[in-house]
Design a protein around this nucleic acid. Structure first.
Lengths: 252, 252
DNA sequence: TAGGCCATGTGGTCTAACCACATCAACTAC
DNA sequence: GTAGTTGATGTGGTTAGACCACATGGCCTA
């Protein structure tokens, strides 16, 4: 392919040129989180490409959780740099689960691996553990429904993961959870007795948190592994099955 | 936003509609790896959207490693479904490293975690270990340059990760490696004596592989952790530093 | 029969136009 | 003077239509 207007060979597609430019701006520090990209029309003119190509690049960055695009005027408008690795990893994992080339069993296994490491490396006094404790208190309330309980459960486990202080592990944990949320909620229907299960989960949560706060990382790791594997075993994890339709669950 | 031609509220952007349709086709099994998407113009007509929106969706899927687009006619032409989770995760991680919201130290730590788990769960007789052994033999040759050695090193560690048989861990390992390749090769320049380092790395590789083949997962995990941490420590990992420019390193 | 050539269909790119939206400044009515 | 209205401006979102390079395959010619 020959780059338009210019007479030298260009193996890149145009939107990749734009991506490379933006990534370079990020690397060089001229563009940082919270900063704004030039308007699409300006950027197109600046890079001598069409607005179409600029938009394709921005769509990719948006799907990667690197930028957020907003219409209108004001602080929420324009294309601003963010940093949401979880969104990108989650979408990618979910799509590949849909192609059935990433077995759900492998995702669960990886989750056990990451979360075990996280609880065994969590700092006992970290604020994330205080959040986790608050979430447990909410879950102990009698008037939480199944959906609310599961939502709190997700936040509890993410708080545990965050307590280890590793951004990559946190992002991967979040993305793994996101990619199998559909499964998890369907699995709940398989449970013979939700109330009994909920009571057990509550007790296990408290045990895990106590172990972490007592600085007993090894015990916490074992407890959390049993906790996760036990839940999926009880609910009957069907590895390699099909994913339910989620029409209102966009990639971004 | 009101969906064009139709009089009901539609909170999705048009390209997300296309993404949802394609993800649904994948989930329902009507589209599988190796299959082909309808031509962009056909798909646009079928979904009553513009070709631009279809293309934006395909760009995202391409960046996610879910499809591959080829021009012309014949078997390599058209948009065909693939499954390359590593590409997606790697691009995402690299971009977020560029935004300096994912510390390189966290990536290295995560790599240690995943790879330790992988070697401790690798099956001693798996074919991936035979590949790893072949790679070690190549690395033992005297006439391999630094770059070739590092390339073989990457493949050796990926083979180890694959031996555990978890697709998610393999993909994450590959993406972590990809996201810090720039760093790793720059770090080499910091080494005081490459020949000595290479000799040490060779010996450590053989030790790791031997432990795996002897079914001593615990020892293999410790060796691989020391191996990785030792290398980065010797080369002087600068956490939070800036990434060098890679103009010919497209996202896809 | 062998070679060249063009019709066909693919993705890649560009242009130009319109829309919805959000802000802000200027203007108008009270 | 103040409050409300209104329009200009600039943003991303979407569309239509055109042209290009490319790869195949069938047709036609020598």
């Amino acid at each position: 392919m020959w780059s338009n207007h210019i007479n030298y060979y260009c193996p890149m597609r145009t939107h990749q040129l734009v991506l490379a430019w933006i990534e370079n701006e990020l690397s060089e520090g001229r563009l940082a989180v919270g900063g704004r990209l030039p308007a699409e029309r300006s950027l197109a003119e600046q890079l001598r490409v069409s607005r179409t190509s600029v938009r394709e690049a921005i769509r990719i960055l948006e799907a990667m959780g690197v930028v957020r695009a907003g219409v209108g005027s004001g602080p929420d408008a324009g294309t601003v740099v963010i940093s949401d690795p979880t969104a990108a990893l989650g979408s990618a994992l979910r799509l590949h689960v849909a192609t059935q080339h990433l077995p759900v069993a492998d995702i669960v296994e990886t989750r056990v691996l990451l979360e075990s490491w996280a609880v065994s490396h969590a700092k006992p006094g970290s604020p994330e553990l205080a959040d986790a404790s608050r979430l447990l208190a909410e879950m102990d309330s009698d008037d939480v429904g199944v959906d609310a309980f599961l939502a709190l459960d997700v936040r509890f486990h993410l708080a545990l993961a965050d307590a280890a202080g590793n951004a990559v592990v946190s992002a991967m944990m979040g993305s793994l959870r996101e990619s199998i949320t559909g499964y998890a909620s369907r699995l709940t229907a398989n449970l013979p007795d939700w109330d009994a299960t909920a009571a057990r989960l509550r007790a296990e949560h408290h045990g895990i948190l106590a172990a972490v706060q007592n600085n007993d990382g090894e015990r916490a790791a074992k407890l959390v592994a049993d906790h996760i594997e036990g839940y999926y075993k009880e609910a009957g994890l069907a590895s390699g099955g099909t994913v339910p339709v989620r029409p209102n669950h966009p990639v971004i």
